[in-house]
C-alpha cells in the first residue's frame, strides 16, 4: 500500500466523519439518559424503524449479555417504537424523519452518536434482528470478552452474519412480542460460504449462506456481504465505511489471522426471516431506502412468495455457540 492510497483513505475517513457530523444534525433527542453511562460500560448502538414487535426481546437479550446502555435512532416509526424505547430506563432515543438511504443506511447517524458518546467505550453496533454470539457467551458476560480484548491490545472483534430461517414458509412463521426469534427460525446453512479479501480496506468479504443458495444462484456476486465488525473499542477518529462491514483506519479490519492461526471471533445470528418479514419487505420496497436500489428487497419480494421453503434437508438447527465453533463459523482463538 503506497503513500498515496494511504493518504486517500485518510481523506476518505475524514470525509465520512464530516458527513456524520452533518447528518448528526438530523437527529433530535427524544430521551437522553447518556449521563448514566459509566466509563467501563459496553454500549449498544442501533437504528430502527417500526421494530416495536422485536425490541422487547432484543433489549432483554442484550441486557442479559451485559450491555449497560442502548443508544438508538428511531427512523420515523409509526408503530410506537419510539414511545416504547423512551420508557426503558437504560435507553437513550433519537428521532429522525430524514432519509435512511442518504444517511448511508443509518451509518452516518450511528457514527455521529458513537463519536459523541462512544469515545473510549466498547461499542456494539447491531440491527434489531441481529443477535451477537461470542465464545463463552452462555457463561461469561460481554465485559469478560472486552476485558480480554483490552488485555490483548485488540481494538475490534470480527463476526460473520448467519442467516437464520424457519422450516416451512416464512410467511407462515408467526412471531410474537417478547418471543425468542430463534424459536421460530432456528435453522441455518453451515458450510457454503465464500470468502475473499478486499485489497483496499483489508477486510474480508464473506458471502453465501441461505440467501446466496436460494436467491442469488444465478448472480452470486450480488449476494449480500456477511462479514461484520460490530464490536469496536471506539475512538472518535474511527469511521464505519459501509454498514458495519468495514472501518477506517484499515487496521481495524484485520480481525483475522494471516499466518494460519485463528483469532477469536463471533457470529451475528440474523433473524430477518420471520412472518413479520414479508409485509415489511413490501413496505421497504415501496420506500426504496435500501442498498443498491433495494435490489435485495426486490428479489426477496418476488422469490419469497414463489419459493416455498428456505429450509433444506442439510439445514442445521441452532443449539449454541459451541456448535458454531465446531462447524468453523466462529472461533475461540486463544481465549480459553
Amino acid at each position: 500500500m503506497g503513500f498515496v492510497t494511504s493518504y486517500k483513505l485518510r481523506l476518505r475517513r475524514k470525509r465520512w466523519l464530516l458527513r456524520a457530523y452533518r447528518k448528526g444534525r438530523e437527529l433530535t433527542s427524544v430521551v437522553d439518559r447518556t449521563k448514566q453511562i459509566q466509563p467501563s460500560d459496553v454500549l449498544l448502538f442501533s437504528s430502527v424503524r417500526n421494530e416495536s414487535v422485536r425490541l422487547p426481546y432484543f433489549l432483554k437479550y442484550y441486557r442479559n449479555q451485559g450491555i449497560r446502555h442502548f443508544l438508538i435512532v428511531d427512523n420515523d416509526s409509526n408503530d410506537g417504537t419510539s414511545e416504547y424505547l423512551a420508557e426503558q430506563n437504560d435507553v437513550s432515543v433519537w428521532h429522525t424523519s430524514a432519509s435512511y438511504k442518504r444517511s448511508r443506511f443509518g451509518v452516518d447517524w450511528i457514527t455521529w452518536l458513537q463519536t459523541k458518546y462512544g469515545q473510549g467505550h466498547w461499542t456494539l453496533v447491531v440491527d434489531a434482528d441481529e443477535f451477537f454470539v461470542y465464545p463463552f457467551c452462555d457463561t461469561r458476560p460481554i465485559r469478560a470478552l472486552t476485558d480480554w480484548l483490552d488485555a490483548s491490545s485488540i481494538k475490534s472483534f470480527g463476526t460473520m452474519l448467519i442467516d437464520m430461517y424457519p422450516k416451512g414458509q416464512v410467511a407462515d412463521t408467526p412471531y410474537e412480542v417478547g418471543q425468542d426469534p430463534l424459536e421460530c427460525a432456528p435453522w441455518f446453512d453451515t458450510g457454503n460460504y465464500t470468502i475473499s479479501k478486499n485489497s483496499i480496506f483489508g477486510n474480508l468479504w464473506i458471502q453465501g449462506g441461505v440467501r446466496a443458495r436460494t436467491f442469488f444462484g444465478d448472480n452470486p456476486a450480488f449476494a449480500p456481504a456477511l462479514n461484520k465488525i460490530p464490536l469496536v473499542k471506539w475512538d472518535r477518529r474511527y469511521a464505519y465505511v459501509s454498514s458495519t462491514h468495514m472501518l477506517l483506519p484499515r487496521g481495524l479490519n484485520l480481525v483475522y489471522d494471516e499466518w494460519g492461526g485463528e483469532k477469536a471471533s463471533g457470529c451475528l445470528l440474523h433473524t430477518k426471516f420471520l412472518g413479520t418479514f414479508l409485509p415489511k419487505a413490501d413496505e421497504e420496497l415501496e420506500r426504496k431506502q435500501h442498498y443498491a436500489a433495494s435490489r435485495e428487497y426486490q428479489i426477496y419480494a418476488s422469490k419469497l412468495k414463489s419459493y416455498p421453503d428456505l429450509w433444506c434437508s442439510q439445514s442445521e438447527k441452532y443449539i449454541n455457540w459451541r456448535q458454531l465453533e465446531v462447524l468453523g463459523l466462529m472461533s475461540k482463538g486463544n481465549w480459553a
Partner: peptide, 12 residues
C-alpha cells in the same frame, strides 16, 4: 488453526 478452514478470523 484448523487446516482447510477459511472464516472471518482465519484467512491465511
Amino acid at each position: 488453526g484448523r487446516p482447510g478452514l477459511l472464516m472471518q478470523s482465519r484467512f491465511p
